[in-house]
Amino acid sequence: MTTTRAEKVRDAAYRMRHHILDMGEVQGQGYVGQALGVADLLAVTYVDQLRFRADDPHWPERDRFLLSTGHYAIALYAALAEAGTVPVTELETYGSDGSRLPMSGMASYTPGMEISGGSLGHGLTVAVGMALGLRLKGREQRVFNFLSDGELDEGSTWEAAMGAAHHQLGLLTAMVDMNALQADGPTENVLGIEPAEEKWEAAGWFTQRVDGNDIDALLAAFDAAAEQARPVGRPSVILCDTRIGRGVPLLETREKAHFMRIDEDEWQLCREQLSEGYEGAR
Protein backbone atom coordinates (compact mmCIF):
# COMPACT_ATOMS: atom_id res chain seq x y z
CA MET A 1 0.00 0.00 0.00
CA THR A 2 1.37 3.39 -1.00
CA THR A 3 1.33 6.06 1.70
CA THR A 4 0.66 9.55 0.41
CA ARG A 5 2.71 12.59 1.37
CA ALA A 6 -0.14 13.89 3.48
CA GLU A 7 -0.55 10.58 5.30
CA LYS A 8 3.17 10.44 6.11
CA VAL A 9 3.03 13.96 7.51
CA ARG A 10 -0.20 13.34 9.42
CA ASP A 11 1.20 10.20 11.03
CA ALA A 12 4.39 12.04 11.99
CA ALA A 13 2.42 14.95 13.48
CA TYR A 14 0.40 12.49 15.57
CA ARG A 15 3.55 10.88 16.97
CA MET A 16 5.08 14.30 17.60
CA ARG A 17 2.04 15.34 19.62
CA HIS A 18 2.47 12.26 21.79
CA HIS A 19 6.14 13.17 22.26
CA ILE A 20 5.07 16.67 23.31
CA LEU A 21 2.65 15.34 25.92
CA ASP A 22 5.29 12.94 27.24
CA MET A 23 7.82 15.76 27.61
CA GLY A 24 5.26 18.08 29.15
CA GLU A 25 4.39 15.50 31.78
CA VAL A 26 8.05 15.41 32.88
CA GLN A 27 7.69 19.02 34.05
CA GLY A 28 3.93 19.04 34.65
CA GLN A 29 3.68 22.31 32.73
CA GLY A 30 5.14 24.27 29.88
CA TYR A 31 4.50 25.57 26.38
CA VAL A 32 2.53 22.50 25.47
CA GLY A 33 -0.34 24.37 23.81
CA GLN A 34 1.83 26.13 21.24
CA ALA A 35 3.74 22.92 20.52
CA LEU A 36 0.57 20.94 19.85
CA GLY A 37 -0.63 23.77 17.63
CA VAL A 38 2.44 23.76 15.37
CA ALA A 39 3.00 19.99 15.18
CA ASP A 40 1.48 19.85 11.69
CA LEU A 41 3.67 22.69 10.49
CA LEU A 42 6.88 21.15 11.83
CA ALA A 43 5.89 17.71 10.53
CA VAL A 44 5.54 19.12 7.01
CA THR A 45 8.90 20.86 7.38
CA TYR A 46 10.90 17.88 8.63
CA VAL A 47 9.12 15.02 6.87
CA ASP A 48 8.52 16.63 3.49
CA GLN A 49 10.61 19.75 2.92
CA LEU A 50 13.87 20.03 4.82
CA ARG A 51 17.09 18.56 3.43
CA PHE A 52 19.20 17.19 6.30
CA ARG A 53 21.06 14.17 7.60
CA ALA A 54 19.79 12.89 10.92
CA ASP A 55 23.16 11.47 11.90
CA ASP A 56 25.15 14.54 10.83
CA PRO A 57 23.49 17.74 12.12
CA HIS A 58 26.40 19.84 10.81
CA TRP A 59 26.31 18.44 7.27
CA PRO A 60 27.40 21.43 5.13
CA GLU A 61 24.78 20.77 2.44
CA ARG A 62 21.85 20.81 4.86
CA ASP A 63 19.03 23.29 4.70
CA ARG A 64 18.92 25.47 7.80
CA PHE A 65 15.94 25.55 10.16
CA LEU A 66 16.06 28.40 12.67
CA LEU A 67 13.72 28.41 15.66
CA SER A 68 13.31 32.05 16.60
CA THR A 69 10.87 31.26 19.42
CA GLY A 70 13.13 29.48 21.89
CA HIS A 71 10.25 28.56 24.18
CA TYR A 72 8.82 26.39 21.36
CA ALA A 73 11.81 24.07 21.81
CA ILE A 74 9.54 21.29 23.06
CA ALA A 75 7.91 21.21 19.60
CA LEU A 76 11.26 21.14 17.81
CA TYR A 77 12.54 18.34 20.05
CA ALA A 78 9.50 16.29 19.02
CA ALA A 79 10.33 16.98 15.36
CA LEU A 80 14.01 16.13 15.86
CA ALA A 81 13.01 12.86 17.54
CA GLU A 82 10.70 12.02 14.66
CA ALA A 83 13.51 12.89 12.23
CA GLY A 84 15.96 10.63 14.06
CA THR A 85 18.36 13.37 15.13
CA VAL A 86 17.45 13.00 18.83
CA PRO A 87 16.67 9.55 20.29
CA VAL A 88 13.04 9.22 21.37
CA THR A 89 14.24 7.79 24.69
CA GLU A 90 16.10 11.04 25.38
CA LEU A 91 12.87 13.04 25.41
CA GLU A 92 12.20 11.91 28.97
CA THR A 93 15.13 14.11 30.08
CA TYR A 94 13.36 17.26 28.84
CA GLY A 95 14.08 20.24 31.07
CA SER A 96 16.12 18.20 33.54
CA ASP A 97 19.56 19.10 34.92
CA GLY A 98 22.28 18.06 32.50
CA SER A 99 19.85 17.37 29.67
CA ARG A 100 20.57 18.24 26.05
CA LEU A 101 16.94 19.33 25.85
CA PRO A 102 16.50 22.49 27.94
CA MET A 103 13.09 24.16 28.14
CA SER A 104 14.35 27.03 25.95
CA GLY A 105 16.27 26.09 22.84
CA MET A 106 20.08 26.24 23.06
CA ALA A 107 22.23 25.57 20.00
CA SER A 108 25.20 24.61 22.16
CA TYR A 109 23.23 21.77 23.77
CA THR A 110 20.94 20.19 21.20
CA PRO A 111 21.91 18.54 17.91
CA GLY A 112 19.88 20.03 15.09
CA MET A 113 19.23 23.30 16.95
CA GLU A 114 20.82 25.97 14.72
CA ILE A 115 20.41 29.01 17.02
CA SER A 116 19.69 29.70 20.67
CA GLY A 117 16.34 31.25 21.46
CA GLY A 118 16.42 34.20 23.81
CA SER A 119 14.73 37.57 23.41
CA LEU A 120 12.06 37.25 20.75
CA GLY A 121 12.32 39.09 17.46
CA HIS A 122 15.88 38.15 16.48
CA GLY A 123 15.42 34.90 14.57
CA LEU A 124 14.55 36.44 11.22
CA THR A 125 17.51 38.80 11.49
CA VAL A 126 19.84 35.83 11.97
CA ALA A 127 18.13 33.98 9.12
CA VAL A 128 18.68 36.92 6.77
CA GLY A 129 22.36 37.05 7.68
CA MET A 130 22.69 33.28 7.26
CA ALA A 131 20.95 33.28 3.87
CA LEU A 132 23.10 36.16 2.66
CA GLY A 133 26.26 34.51 3.96
CA LEU A 134 25.45 31.23 2.21
CA ARG A 135 24.88 33.07 -1.06
CA LEU A 136 28.16 34.96 -0.77
CA LYS A 137 29.86 31.58 -0.39
CA GLY A 138 28.20 30.38 -3.58
CA ARG A 139 25.96 27.89 -1.76
CA GLU A 140 22.29 27.25 -2.48
CA GLN A 141 20.93 25.74 0.72
CA ARG A 142 17.52 27.00 1.76
CA VAL A 143 17.01 28.77 5.08
CA PHE A 144 13.74 28.26 6.96
CA ASN A 145 12.86 30.54 9.87
CA PHE A 146 10.06 29.75 12.31
CA LEU A 147 8.68 32.74 14.21
CA SER A 148 5.52 33.66 16.08
CA ASP A 149 2.86 36.27 15.44
CA GLY A 150 3.94 38.03 18.62
CA GLU A 151 7.33 38.63 17.00
CA LEU A 152 5.56 40.72 14.36
CA ASP A 153 5.27 43.32 17.13
CA GLU A 154 9.07 43.65 17.04
CA GLY A 155 10.73 46.31 14.90
CA SER A 156 13.73 44.06 14.32
CA THR A 157 11.49 41.57 12.53
CA TRP A 158 10.39 44.18 10.00
CA GLU A 159 13.92 45.46 9.52
CA ALA A 160 14.94 41.90 8.69
CA ALA A 161 11.95 41.49 6.37
CA MET A 162 12.93 44.62 4.44
CA GLY A 163 16.56 43.50 4.36
CA ALA A 164 15.64 40.10 2.94
CA ALA A 165 13.65 41.68 0.11
CA HIS A 166 16.38 44.28 -0.54
CA HIS A 167 19.02 41.57 -0.93
CA GLN A 168 16.59 39.36 -2.88
CA LEU A 169 17.14 36.33 -0.65
CA GLY A 170 15.02 33.96 -2.68
CA LEU A 171 16.12 30.87 -0.74
CA LEU A 172 14.71 32.23 2.53
CA THR A 173 11.32 31.04 3.75
CA ALA A 174 9.69 32.32 6.92
CA MET A 175 6.82 30.54 8.61
CA VAL A 176 4.77 32.40 11.19
CA ASP A 177 2.67 30.73 13.88
CA MET A 178 -0.46 32.90 13.87
CA ASN A 179 -1.98 31.48 17.06
CA ALA A 180 -3.25 34.93 18.13
CA LEU A 181 -1.96 34.61 21.70
CA GLN A 182 0.94 36.14 23.64
CA ALA A 183 2.06 35.97 27.26
CA ASP A 184 0.13 39.14 28.04
CA GLY A 185 -3.05 38.12 26.25
CA PRO A 186 -4.53 38.00 22.74
CA THR A 187 -2.16 39.40 20.11
CA GLU A 188 -4.77 41.85 18.85
CA ASN A 189 -5.00 43.38 22.33
CA VAL A 190 -1.25 43.61 22.93
CA LEU A 191 -0.37 45.22 19.60
CA GLY A 192 -2.47 44.48 16.54
CA ILE A 193 -0.58 43.06 13.56
CA GLU A 194 -3.31 42.84 10.97
CA PRO A 195 -3.52 43.04 8.02
CA ALA A 196 -0.46 40.79 8.17
CA GLU A 197 -0.58 39.58 4.57
CA GLU A 198 -0.58 43.09 3.15
CA LYS A 199 2.36 44.09 5.35
CA TRP A 200 4.54 41.20 4.19
CA GLU A 201 3.55 41.79 0.57
CA ALA A 202 4.42 45.49 0.93
CA ALA A 203 7.80 44.46 2.29
CA GLY A 204 8.42 42.55 -0.95
CA TRP A 205 7.77 38.94 0.12
CA PHE A 206 5.88 36.19 -1.70
CA THR A 207 3.08 35.81 0.83
CA GLN A 208 0.63 33.00 1.59
CA ARG A 209 -1.80 32.51 4.47
CA VAL A 210 -3.19 29.08 5.29
CA ASP A 211 -4.82 27.02 8.00
CA GLY A 212 -1.75 25.86 9.89
CA ASN A 213 -3.52 22.68 11.02
CA ASP A 214 -4.57 21.66 7.49
CA ILE A 215 -1.80 19.42 6.21
CA ASP A 216 -2.95 19.50 2.57
CA ALA A 217 -3.00 23.31 2.65
CA LEU A 218 0.44 23.40 4.27
CA LEU A 219 1.91 21.06 1.65
CA ALA A 220 0.49 23.19 -1.15
CA ALA A 221 1.87 26.37 0.42
CA PHE A 222 5.33 24.90 0.92
CA ASP A 223 5.31 23.58 -2.65
CA ALA A 224 4.45 27.05 -3.92
CA ALA A 225 7.28 28.54 -1.83
CA ALA A 226 9.68 25.92 -3.19
CA GLU A 227 8.73 26.86 -6.76
CA GLN A 228 9.64 30.47 -5.93
CA ALA A 229 12.94 29.54 -4.28
CA ARG A 230 16.01 30.65 -6.21
CA PRO A 231 19.34 32.22 -5.24
CA VAL A 232 18.17 35.68 -6.27
CA GLY A 233 14.49 36.42 -5.96
CA ARG A 234 11.65 37.15 -3.57
CA PRO A 235 11.80 35.59 -0.10
CA SER A 236 8.69 33.65 0.92
CA VAL A 237 6.52 33.77 4.02
CA ILE A 238 3.75 31.38 5.04
CA LEU A 239 1.37 32.75 7.67
CA CYS A 240 -0.11 29.76 9.49
CA ASP A 241 -3.31 30.16 11.49
CA THR A 242 -3.03 27.50 14.20
CA ARG A 243 -5.06 26.48 17.23
CA ILE A 244 -3.41 26.26 20.63
CA GLY A 245 -3.62 22.70 21.96
CA ARG A 246 -4.63 21.28 18.58
CA GLY A 247 -5.64 17.61 18.78
CA VAL A 248 -6.48 17.63 22.49
CA PRO A 249 -9.94 19.16 23.12
CA LEU A 250 -9.23 19.48 26.84
CA LEU A 251 -6.37 21.86 26.09
CA GLU A 252 -7.90 23.61 23.07
CA THR A 253 -10.47 25.23 25.36
CA ARG A 254 -8.18 26.13 28.24
CA GLU A 255 -8.17 29.82 29.16
CA LYS A 256 -4.62 30.13 30.53
CA ALA A 257 -3.06 28.70 27.39
CA HIS A 258 0.27 30.48 26.90
CA PHE A 259 2.07 28.53 29.64
CA MET A 260 -0.05 25.58 30.64
CA ARG A 261 -0.17 23.88 34.01
CA ILE A 262 -1.72 20.47 33.56
CA ASP A 263 -2.86 18.39 36.52
CA GLU A 264 -1.28 14.99 37.07
CA ASP A 265 -4.49 13.12 36.33
CA GLU A 266 -5.06 14.98 33.06
CA TRP A 267 -2.07 13.78 31.06
CA GLN A 268 -3.50 10.36 30.27
CA LEU A 269 -6.82 11.92 29.36
CA CYS A 270 -4.95 14.20 26.93
CA ARG A 271 -3.31 11.17 25.30
CA GLU A 272 -6.63 9.37 25.01
CA GLN A 273 -8.29 12.38 23.37
CA LEU A 274 -5.37 12.72 20.97
CA SER A 275 -5.59 9.04 19.98
CA GLU A 276 -9.38 9.15 19.62
CA GLY A 277 -9.19 12.16 17.31
CA TYR A 278 -6.44 10.61 15.22
CA GLU A 279 -8.24 7.29 14.80
CA GLY A 280 -11.50 9.07 14.03
CA ALA A 281 -9.85 11.03 11.22
CA ARG A 282 -8.37 7.96 9.52
Rank of each mutant, 00 (worst) to 15 (best):
A54H: 13
L101Q: 09
F259H: 08
R15Y: 06
E151W: 11
E198M: 08
Q29L: 10
D184E: 12
T187K: 04
R230T: 13
R17E: 11
R53T: 06
A202E: 10
L274C: 15
G245F: 14
A281E: 14
H167D: 00
A281M: 12
A75D: 09
F222S: 06
P195S: 11
A39L: 03
A183F: 13
F144T: 05
E279P: 01
L67W: 12
S119I: 05
T89L: 00
K199M: 08
Q27W: 10
D11K: 03
M162V: 03
L172W: 11
V176M: 00
A174N: 06
T125P: 04
A225T: 04
M16S: 07
G112L: 07
L191T: 05
M130T: 14
A107K: 10
V128H: 12
E82M: 05
P87W: 13
L134H: 14
M130N: 08
A164I: 01
I115C: 07
A83D: 08
G138P: 07
T93K: 11
E194S: 07
E188M: 09
C240E: 03
L67M: 12
L172E: 09
E252H: 07
L66S: 10
P231R: 15
G185T: 12
L218C: 10
Y31S: 04
A257Q: 11
S275A: 14
L250M: 15
A220K: 10
F146V: 06
V237G: 08
W267P: 03
L218K: 06
T93V: 04
P111E: 04
T4D: 11
W205L: 00
R230Q: 15
G28C: 01
G24K: 04
R17C: 15
L171Q: 13
E279V: 09
G138R: 08
G247W: 14
R135K: 15
M175F: 15
L76G: 04
K137D: 15
T69G: 05
Q49T: 06
L132M: 04
S104H: 14
W200M: 05
R139K: 13
R142L: 01
V248W: 15
A196G: 02
I115S: 11
L181E: 06
E197I: 00
T187E: 07
R243K: 10
T45S: 07
Q182R: 10
M260W: 04
E201G: 02
A78I: 13
H19G: 06
Y46K: 05
L250E: 14
D55N: 15
T85F: 02
A131D: 08
G95Q: 03
L42D: 14
S68E: 06
V128T: 14
M103W: 08
E159K: 02
T125Y: 02
N179G: 00
E276K: 13
P195F: 05
A43M: 13
D153K: 08
M175N: 02
M106F: 10
G277F: 03
H167V: 00
E194N: 11
A81I: 09
G121R: 03
Q29V: 01
G121P: 00
R100F: 03
N145W: 01
F144M: 05
A226Q: 13
N145I: 03
A217T: 08
S99I: 09
G118Y: 15
L219A: 00
A75F: 13
A164L: 00
D265N: 15
I238W: 11
E159H: 03
P111R: 04
E151Y: 08
L67C: 04
Q182L: 11
F52A: 08
